[in-house]
């Protein structure tokens, strides 16, 4: 049977202003990984990446990014076809939870010198390089929406949100970008 067509929640959107661009990130495999201390070594090995153990930290290796969201919670993001669930399926005898969120979340890339200013229109966090350096990530808020914010480069951030919030988050960032 022909596979059903996939429709990205932000399909076709793009914004380019001087000093700032907004772009939907391509579809990705995502996993919510929940596990206690005792399971981490085995999971590290299965993923081929050391899960970050410190608040706000992230780690990347082999096309995978692991974002610390809570003391027993990570968001794993990988390119389509990475087969995340399969890598963890073989693990037995340890307690953990892996739940596919590839379609629950979507992401926006915001890039440019004014990116911090646009985000600061709705995010109450200190986004200075000292407080939120490259590699930092955190769940937080943008206006009335919850987001996961990750700094990928000095002037580039990834904004993850639930798919039905994507329209609001996109429009908020556009409004903020025009005001920044």
């Amino acid at each position: 049977m022909a596979e059903a067509a996939r429709i990205h929640p932000l399909a076709g959107r793009r914004l380019a202003l001087p000093g700032l661009s907004l772009e939907p990130c391509p579809p990705a495999e995502r996993l919510s990984l929940r596990a206690g201390e005792d399971a981490l070594a085995a999971i590290d090995e299965a993923l081929g990446l050391a899960l970050p153990r410190r608040p706000m930290a992230s780690a990347t290796a082999g096309g995978l990014a692991a974002l610390w969201l809570g003391p027993d919670e990570w968001l794993i993001v990988a390119d389509e076809g990475a087969g995340l669930a399969g890598r963890l399926a073989a693990l037995t005898g340890i307690a953990f939870s892996a739940v596919d969120l590839s379609h629950r979340n979507t992401a926006i890339s915001i890039d440019g010198d004014k990116a911090v200013l646009a985000l600061a229109a709705g995010c109450p966090r200190d986004l200075s390089p000292a407080a939120f350096p490259v590699g930092a990530c955190s769940r937080t808020v943008l206006g009335k929406a919850e987001i996961v914010l990750a700094r990928e480069a000095p002037a580039r951030f990834r904004v993850e949100c639930w798919r039905s919030f994507a329209d609001y988050v996109w429009n908020y960032l556009v409004d903020a970008a025009k005001s920044a």
Binding site: G122, K144, A145, S164, F165, D167, Y168, N171, Y172
Partner: peptide, 16 residues
């Protein structure tokens, strides 16, 4: 109120 006007007054969630 700043940004929270019109379509940004509140989140409007729509299904796929």
């Amino acid at each position: 109120v700043n940004h929270a006007r019109g379509e940004l007054f509140d989140v409007t969630r729509r299904t796929p």
